[in-house]
Simulated scan of single mutants.
Amino acid sequence: MKLEEKTISSKQVFDGCLLKIYKDEVLLPDGNTATREYNKHHGAVCVVPLTKDNEVLMVKQYRYPLRQVMLEIPAGKLEKGETPLENCKRELKEETGADGYSYMTLGSYVGLCAYSDEIVHMYMCRVDGCGEQHLDDDEFLNVEKIPFDKVVEMVLNNQIIDGKTQVAILKAKYLLDSGKI
């Protein structure tokens, strides 16, 4: 059975700073029609920054939609004119003050494919430590150094529930343990 849906019409119903919400009418594989609502997003990056002592630079920040403080790896949305790697380096520097080196891609992550086309480009790198943060005016976060194995344990114990962080940490763990990097 064919699974693809064909767009009949598309209308932007909300145009915000972050969210660009569309409502489309689609032709289903069986010939019927349906409505699809989704967010068009220009993408994001995240990075697992490891110190020489195998600590991860993590950030704690309040996430309004969940109404709670979340522990995550440094991340941010893609900016026009930057490659994902350039964006990643900039976000790491802004959020932690760290300069990374020996960057390695961990692939891509799509976390909300039912209603968003956002793709998160994941990286890992080495860092020598933190420096001065250069946060956006509306950005407030704390940096914590946590031993890598402790972060893995926190992911597995559901103490870290952010999806991009979970995937990137577990991929980095596998690659390090298997000697692939």
Rank of each mutant, 00 (worst) to 15 (best):
N157Q: 13
N157D: 08
L135D: 13
I181C: 14
G76C: 07
D138N: 15
L106I: 09
Q166S: 13
Q12L: 07
R63C: 12
G107Y: 00
P29N: 10
V155G: 10
E95Y: 07
K52P: 00
E118N: 06
L156P: 08
A114G: 03
P29A: 00
L27K: 02
K52M: 10
K80T: 15
I21W: 06
L71I: 06
N54Y: 15
Y101E: 14
S116L: 02
V152G: 00
D138L: 12
E95C: 08
R36L: 09
N32T: 14
T105G: 15
G163F: 01
D53Y: 14
S102P: 11
K80D: 11
N87E: 02
H41L: 08
Y38H: 08
D177A: 11
P49H: 01
Q159A: 08
Y115V: 11
M58T: 05
D162E: 15
D117L: 00
V47K: 07
C125R: 06
A172M: 06
S9A: 07
N158E: 09
C125V: 02
Y174D: 02
V48K: 07
T165Q: 05
T33L: 08
M104Q: 15
M124V: 11
C125P: 00
K77E: 10
L27I: 04
P29W: 03
V155S: 01
D24T: 07
V48T: 04
Y38E: 00
N87C: 05
E91Y: 13
M1A: 09
T7D: 11
T35K: 12
A168P: 01
K171L: 15
V120E: 08
F148S: 01
I119G: 08
E5K: 12
S178E: 06
M1C: 10
V45S: 02
M104W: 14
E153R: 14
N158T: 08
M104R: 15
S102V: 09
N87H: 04
L112H: 14
L135T: 06
M1H: 11
K60D: 08
V69P: 08
V151Y: 01
K89C: 03
L85M: 04
K80H: 13
P29S: 03
G16H: 05
P84G: 05
K171F: 06
E91T: 13
K80M: 12
N87S: 04
I161N: 13
C125Q: 13
K173A: 06
V47F: 11
C88R: 14
K77V: 14
L176F: 11
L19P: 01
N54S: 15
E79F: 12
F140D: 14
Q61P: 06
Q68D: 08
V152S: 03
